[in-house]
Amino acid sequence: MFSILMSFFYDNIFLIFLIIFFFSISFLLDGFFYGISEIKRLFVFGCFSLIFSIPLIYYLVVNYSLKGALIGLIFSKILLIIFQLNYFYKKILMNKNIIFRVKYLKEIILFYKKYNIPMVISGLIATPVITFCMYVLSSRKGMEEVAIFSWCYQIYLLAMFIPVALGSYYLSMFSKINLDDKKKNIDKVTRFNILISILASVVMLFFSEIILSLGGVGNYSNSLVVFYSFIVTMFFYSLNLGYVSLWSSLGKNKFQLKMQFLWALSLIITVLVLVDSFGAISMPIGMSLGFLFQFIVQRYKFKSLMV
């Protein structure tokens, strides 16, 4: 999402900074509300911020089109942060029974090293890997193939928004249950994610020609094949989404990092081997294989924990 925003505001570094800053604060506060099981309150805050933002969003869309819509959404996010911080101050910081005190700096650093750093690195891997693969694709097959991949990839990310966004909820749920219940729920989460991806796939198939035309790649000979390949990738991606939250709840963030390296290696090798023959199609093939390998290893790892 940030890459899309930056493509519109590339000439305003300060505005880009504000966008990333407010969205990051919002994500942080979302995690806090998930952690204290205040999901309903988070939903109410989200509704209020949207309702109060609608008049401004309407004005900005009418006068500034897509850029206005994005600025309006940013304003809505700022309102949400205000509601969240107000609740945090009144109900948490003003609670005299709760004492916030940093006692053991060394232990905090060790905790960050064990849990946060692997998660941060894991989240950073995809961008440089995909960028490298796009460079290989452009150098061997030309910018036409890059254009096809880029548009189909953006639609793929949009289609998987709901299951990805539910990651914080899954983490909160897995953190509160024992290992046996985790086993039962990981299968339910996986089935739900698969269902969402199937529904999104049906919509994508129905509107495939329109979507490709909007991206200006509808006339390219292999654009439909690349588009359909990403639909397959969505299925394999949905198999693994629940495990990201599961490993975090078990304190095995380093294992999740290893899984991300496995996906990256699978994608790079596949693209290097197949790009000359298949062009842009090699990208979703490599991503699908990476997700498949991840799923196989993760299922085996989790079953070994249950023994």
Results as ranks from 00 to 15, higher is better:
2 F>L: 07
7 S>D: 14
20 I>T: 05
24 S>C: 00
25 I>K: 06
34 Y>R: 13
34 Y>S: 00
41 R>A: 07
45 F>L: 08
47 C>K: 11
52 F>V: 09
52 F>Y: 09
60 L>H: 09
61 V>C: 07
63 N>D: 13
68 G>A: 02
68 G>E: 02
70 L>N: 03
70 L>P: 05
77 K>N: 14
77 K>S: 02
78 I>S: 12
81 I>R: 11
91 K>E: 15
100 F>G: 08
102 V>Y: 12
102 V>P: 01
109 I>K: 14
113 K>D: 05
117 I>A: 02
119 M>V: 14
119 M>N: 05
120 V>R: 07
134 M>G: 03
149 F>Y: 14
156 Y>D: 05
159 A>D: 04
160 M>T: 04
164 V>D: 05
165 A>W: 14
165 A>L: 10
176 K>S: 10
178 N>M: 07
180 D>C: 01
181 D>N: 15
182 K>R: 14
182 K>T: 03
185 N>M: 12
187 D>Y: 08
189 V>N: 02
191 R>F: 00
192 F>E: 02
194 I>N: 05
205 L>Q: 03
211 I>E: 03
222 N>D: 11
230 F>C: 05
233 T>G: 00
239 L>S: 10
242 G>K: 05
243 Y>D: 07
249 S>R: 06
250 L>M: 13
252 K>D: 09
256 Q>D: 05
258 K>H: 08
262 L>V: 15
262 L>I: 15
262 L>E: 12
263 W>P: 00
263 W>G: 03
272 L>C: 11
275 V>I: 04
276 D>R: 05
280 A>S: 09
281 I>G: 00
285 I>N: 08
291 F>T: 00
293 F>I: 02
298 Q>V: 04
298 Q>R: 13
303 K>N: 11
305 L>D: 09
305 L>T: 02
307 V>D: 06
